[in-house]
Design a protein around this nucleic acid. Structure first.
Lengths: 205, 205
DNA sequence: CCCCCTCTAGAACGAACGCTCTATCCAGGA
DNA sequence: TCCTGGATAGAGCGTTCGTTCTAGAGGGGG
């Protein structure tokens, strides 16, 4: 971790090569806030987990905790968008694709012992009155995810307005079901949601 | 606010009569945590808002913040259960009843300027690893709400298994749509969810 | 060779945190 | 009349919070 840090972090993301300081901080912030929420996560805990110092955190994020949180949300946004794209394209039938998404979310949640829920939700909840930037980043994440679903449905031949509405309900139902699955420590809510969403999508074909 | 406090608070809830200290504390905690989350809300802020002193808070809730939070969740649980019962019975058709529920949630959210979301979600999120009591109370709230919907659907002639599954998706979709409505500051997610849930329920008749 | 600039390092600040503790108040029973 | 015990009151504990600040490390360009 030297002055070459900045160039490293932009180049390598996928491999196991060492990440730049800035990227390590963002990832640590995203993961911690996903589990503990915005208020429940401290800057010092983030810097410790990222193996960076407080000085580095404020060097890369002069806006402090709020700037770091919005960046963490954007990280979670991109991350889920990637898996969403992949899963939606993995099935021929749009209804099956939606059900597969619910299954994947359920698997990942179970794998984390029901701890890693939606990073965007956990980070943004409770900041409505204090940090509008964070809310905006969260809204943008939801909008992007809905856009991916909407595109997929339109490509399957579903009309523009129906696809728009369906995308809303698909994303939001997954969101709510994941939340319920988390507190119940069971994937039943997500699997039921997947079946119902598939049925709903099918009814518009 | 004297020694008669304890008897007062059990007796009067609906009227405009003065509430007992304990009840005032629970309500303040519920409202504040609904907006700011568990970690974002301080005990001193609660006692200030409830017009009670720190001594009173720890007198009624020796378990501290965690005990207070579980009580706040149970309060929110009962509150939403009451409106849920009322709205579900206000319509003849079960699908229409579900859509009406989404409309009511949207109205209340809008009335609070998109700030008062689900009290159970906001309070319990981020406490998974630290406070299992809070998680349990949240899970019980969801289960109760699902139970109310399931009963309503079964009374409308829907089969046991279908009613069980539908109740899951109805509650969880409303949950997720309310969250999205909050960050987007728009009731569109909830209204779309209401239409889709009605269509889904209808498809099981 | 040395300056410069990005990045690292962590001590220190005031404020707020959850919680403990002692003191006081006051209605009802003996 | 005094006593008892639930309820109120708030100063103060140690800790952690987000943030600021100064100091140093170290490689590339003049």
């Amino acid at each position: 971790m030297k002055a070459t840090t900045q160039t490293e972090q932009t180049a390598q993301t996928g491999t196991g090569a060492p990440l730049g300081t800035r990227e390590r901080i963002v990832r640590a912030a995203s993961r911690l806030m996903q589990r503990q929420g915005y208020e429940g996560t401290g800057i010092k805990q983030i810097s410790r987990e990222a193996e960076a110092t407080l000085g580095s955190v404020y060097h890369f994020f002069p806006g402090g905790k709020q700037e770091l949180a919005t960046e963490a949300i954007r990280h979670g946004d991109r991350e889920f968008a990637d898996t969403l794209r992949a899963v939606l394209d993995s099935e021929e039938d749009p209804a099956a694709a939606v059900a597969a998404t619910a299954r994947v979310v359920a698997e990942e949640l179970r794998a984390s012992d029901w701890v890693d829920g939606c990073p965007v939700t956990a980070t943004s909840l409770g900041t409505a009155t204090t940090a509008p930037d964070i809310q905006r980043a969260a809204a943008e994440a939801f909008a992007r995810w809905r856009g991916l679903v909407e595109d997929r449905l339109r490509r399957a031949g579903i009309g523009a307005e129906d696809a728009h509405d369906l995308a809303h309900t698909v994303i939001h139902t997954l969101e709510g079901a994941e939340l319920a699955a988390q507190v119940a420590r069971s994937d039943e809510p997500l699997l039921i949601a997947g079946r119902h969403l598939a049925r709903l999508v099918d009814s518009y074909r």
